[in-house]
Design a protein around this nucleic acid. Structure first.
Length: 854
RNA sequence: GGGCGCGUAGCUCAGUGGGAGAGCGCUCGCUUCACACGCGAGAGGUCGCUGGUUCGAAACCAGCCGUGCCCACCA
């Protein structure tokens, strides 16, 4: 350590992450540590594809947690010498990004329609160029060791190539098809959205009962509906085939009130005879179930609600009304006609758009779909057989249940921002051409009036290719050969279906191998009050503010420590704990580095206390490492914390201070060794402070980021030393507690004698007892220690403490005797448990005897 | 309607068959020459309720109460 660095350590008594983090990160980037060569095989390499954040986004706590977990494993493996690649990039996020830019346009008083498609898309690209890199910069603040030189975007040229190739191949296999089908229409974005983008909310509507007269009869069928406005599109009335009440009417007709249309009365098992009157009006144009019933029975499909959410020309006099206006108007008309039999409040689940928040309008429209059964089959198999391991285990079942009931995926979106569907229609001969690149002319008629499909693909269609498209697929790139399949994926459970499942399917279908070996589904960090962290609720906590305030290491430690298999509330205390740990490491390092003799960092085992520390250290390394490897981040970091605070700082450093100040070589070597290993152990989770401290370490031969990760040295495990020192520590604590409870002045050194073998020197020093046996009569016992009378002792307090201890012991002895007096316990409990109980009883009995009768 | 969780110290959470733990907060004592973002000590819990299994239950089983999330085509 040169003089300047030494002065730096001497002067600053606190760890200040602010400037250090930026400097250390710059050193990593300069060193090129995050940019591996594309060499080696995937089995020996380590690679991760980051869940790509939306370009519209800013780093939120979900990213920060997810990033902390990935970085911990990426750094661990990089330190282990594996060729390690962490790919990052952003997602074009069709709807979300288009919405942001449209909002900007609105503020200028313009619309995207005024601009036209081409200009609008250019405008979104400009927006992306200006703001799209913000989130990547924010990942750097977190310390994420991604390969920033291999950044990808789901709309960059190579990616488009991959998407088009996939579309074409799926089309050629017959999986992708175009059909008039009922979709979830979002009037807010005026686009179809997939089932997964729909969220159901509890809503209280009115349940109307409307009388439909049976033709040529005076009977009426009363039907219940929450959507009378769709009755204009009714094309049948259905009853359950088993329902005897209506058996005679099946095959006859009703008359649709207000419209006068003849509606066949059909029988379909979907109808629940128990619900309402057991009669269901069928509106194939505006209800998902009715649509399916309609297709089964060959019913007409009438559309009365347009894509704008307004009633169309089919609605006659109601044309132009909004859905809710139409509902009121129609209900009023039905009331006038005396056919509105009943109206009741009714609470049920109603689909809403996850995107716009508007109520979904099921509409029939011409869309592109992808059938999923064939793609799902192998994706089910690999998870069932644990080739792809989903952890925690419960999410494996959730994945499989969903996959086994998979439905066709509506992949087209009526947007402008995204991958425009690679389908062209010939204006001359009506040929449909699906191609990976825009065709020059129609292959059927050589016509050149080709028009590309207006729609774009669902954003998740391109995200599904992420793990391999980012590595250069479909080209046979060195990256693909070296890093695919990737090693693992961390994700929030909300995108298990939306993204993870689809990556598995596409990975198997295209590059021909699973996209990752392990999927770890992490918990969700909620706001401090237990609500969802969300921008719109105002409950979000900004990771960048936390980093500014307490440092990236503190935030990373905090997030990992609070993470769990269940959702948890954000805990400032855990982040604070991380900041405290960084400061503790810094100060422990100061103590060691400024005082150690000039020796080589190495374990020295001549002395008991050193063997104890080394054994504790190596066990901690083994345990923390094992927890990191099994995604148990929370216990990993908390265990490391406990070692640093407890074993290392509270005990070992206090025990060896005299030796350290003397510049003794054994303790210097051991401390340098322990520090080196602790910094390495903590580097994956707290990279900045550990890298910074490493820069002061005499053993340093390069950056810690590529220093070998410590591997537990079992030859240093020493159970005897651990037991022996643990006992001495326990004795020290009892002595300190006794002093405190008896109210001995803090500085007073109490004379005492001790039974049996003399304990280590530190017991007396750290408890401020002098075991030299001079003084008067013993006045109290603490374990094997006889405290002698002295001026510092208050006789009354000593007596009170003695009495209290006696009571405690009597209670313990009673408990032990009761337990050992239980015949069932003695005969059925394992022998060692019984023995342990006997031992405890004997110890308590002895302590009581030593205290005297009082 | 189905599925999955959760209910442990004032707060946030660990603990999954042998004497209740951590961090924060609280109380008391320490300006001890690494750190007052510190050190030492302590108080605080019939482990949601009721039954059951067991020599032994916070943990396993059943029921109930409370609470959260996911999935779902009963109008």
């Amino acid at each position: 350590m040169d003089a300047a660095k030494r002065a730096q350590l001497e002067q600053n008594t606190r760890y200040e992450p602010g400037d250090i983090e930026a400097r250390v990160f710059a050193e990593w980037m300069e060193g090129g540590y995050f940019h591996p060569d594309a060499t080696g095989a995937p089995e020996e390499n380590f690679s991760v594809a980051i869940p790509p954040p939306n370009v519209t986004g800013a780093l939120h706590m979900g990213h920060a947690l997810n990033g902390s977990m990935q970085d911990a494993l990426v750094r661990l493996n990089r330190m282990r010498g594996r060729n390690t690649l962490w790919i990052l990039g952003t997602d074009h996020a069709g709807i979300a990004t288009q919405a942001v830019v449209e909002k900007e346009l609105r503020a200028e008083g313009r619309t995207r329609q005024e601009l036209g498609r081409e200009t609008f898309v250019e405008r979104v690209w400009e927006w992306k160029e200006e703001y799209g890199s913000r989130i990547v910069e924010q990942y750097k603040r977190l310390g994420a060791s991604c390969d920033y030189e291999r950044e990808r975007f789901t709309l960059d040229a190579g990616y488009v190539k991959a998407v088009y190739k996939v579309f074409k191949q799926l089309y050629d296999k017959g999986y992708i098809y175009r059909d008039n089908y009922m979709v979830n229409w979002d009037p807010g974005t005026r686009s179809a959205i997939s089932d997964l983008e729909v969220e159901n909310r509890e809503v209280t509507d009115s349940l109307f009962s409307i009388d439909y007269p049976v033709q040529g009869s005076d009977r009426v069928l009363s039907v219940a509906t929450v959507r009378p406005e769709t009755m204009l599109a009714d094309t049948a009335v259905a009853v359950n085939p088993e329902d005897e009440r209506y058996a005679d009417l099946v095959g006859q007709f009703c008359v649709l009130p207000l419209v006068g249309r003849k509606l066949p009365i059909i029988a379909d098992a979907y109808v629940d005879p128990e619900f309402g009157t057991g009669v269901l009006k069928i509106t194939p144009g505006h209800d998902m179930n009715d649509f399916e019933i309609g297709r089964r029975h060959g019913l007409d499909e009438i559309t009365v609600i347009g894509p704008d959410g307004l009633l169309n020309g089919e609605a006659g006099e109601f044309e132009g009304l909004s859905v809710s206006e139409a509902q009121r108007a129609i209900a009023a008309r039905l009331r006038d006609k005396g056919v509105l039999r009943d109206e009741q409040p009714y609470t049920h689940a109603v689909p809403f758009s996850h995107r716009s928040g508007e109520r979904i309008e099921p509409l029939i429209s011409l869309q592109w779909f992808c059938r999923m059964e064939e793609l799902a089959a192998p994706a089910i198999k690999v998870v069932e057989e644990d080739e792809v391991r989903i952890r925690p285990e419960q999410w494996k079942r959730v994945y499989l249940n969903w996959m086994k009931e998979i439905r066709p995926w509506c992949v087209s979106r009526q947007l402008w921002w995204g991958h425009q569907i690679p389908v062209w229609y010939c204006g001359d001969c009506e040929e449909t051409i699906v191609a990976e690149v825009a065709p020059e002319k129609c292959p059927a008629c050589d016509g050149t009036t080709l028009v590309q499909d207006e729609d774009v693909l669902d954003t998740w269609f391109s995200s599904a290719l992420w793990p391999f498209a980012t590595l250069g697929w479909p080209d046979d790139t060195p990256e693909l050969r070296a890093f695919y399949p990737t090693s693992f994926l961390t994700t929030a459970r909300e995108i298990l279906f939306l993204w993870v499942a689809r990556m598995v399917m596409m990975g198997i279908e295209f590059p021909g191998d699973i996209p990752f070996r392990d999927v770890y589904v992490h918990s969700v960090i909620q706001a401090r009050d237990g609500r969802r962290m969300s921008k719109s609720l105002g409950t979000g906590i900004d990771p960048l503010e936390e980093i500014d305030e307490r440092g990236a290491d503190a935030l990373r430690f905090g997030l990992l420590a609070m993470s769990s298999t269940q959702d948890v509330r954000y805990s400032d205390a855990k982040v604070e704990q991380g900041a405290d740990l960084a400061n503790k490491l810094y100060n422990a390092s100061r103590l060691i580095l400024l005082n150690a003799a000039e020796v080589e960092s190495a374990p020295r085992t001549a002395r008991l206390e050193d063997r104890w520390l080394l054994s504790r250290l190596e066990r901690t390394i083994a345990s923390v490492t094992e927890k990191l490897e099994t995604y148990d981040f929370s216990h990993a970091v908390q265990e490391a914390y406990a070692f640093v605070y407890g074993d290392l700082c509270d005990w070992y450093l206090e025990i060896v201070k005299p030796r350290l100040y003397e510049g003794e070589e054994d303790v210097s070597a051991t401390l340098l060794y322990a520090l080196e290993r602790v910094l390495g152990l903590l580097h994956p989770t707290m990279p900045f402070v550990t890298e910074e401290l490493w820069s002061f370490h005499p053993a340093r031969d390069g950056h810690l980021v590529v220093h070998p990760f410590p591997s537990a040295d079992e030859s240093l495990f020493d159970p005897d030393a651990e037991d022996e020192v643990a006992e001495e520590i326990a004795l020290t604590r009892s002595l300190r507690a006794w002093r405190d409870l008896v109210g001995v002045p803090a500085k007073a050194v109490l004379p005492a004698v001790i039974d049996g073998m003399a304990p280590s020197e530190f017991v007396g020093r750290l408890s401020r007892f002098a075991f030299d046996g001079v003084g008067s009569d013993p006045v109290a016992s603490v374990g094997p220690v006889r405290v002698l009378a002295s001026d510092a002792l208050d006789a009354g307090a000593v007596e009170a403490r003695l009495g209290k201890r006696r009571e405690e012991l009597l209670a313990e002895i009673e408990r032990g005797e009761r337990k050992l007096g239980n015949k069932g316990f003695v005969s059925k409990a394992p022998g060692e448990v019984v023995e342990e109980e006997r031992g405890k009883l004997a110890r308590y009995q002895k302590e009581l005897d030593d205290l005297g009768a009082g």
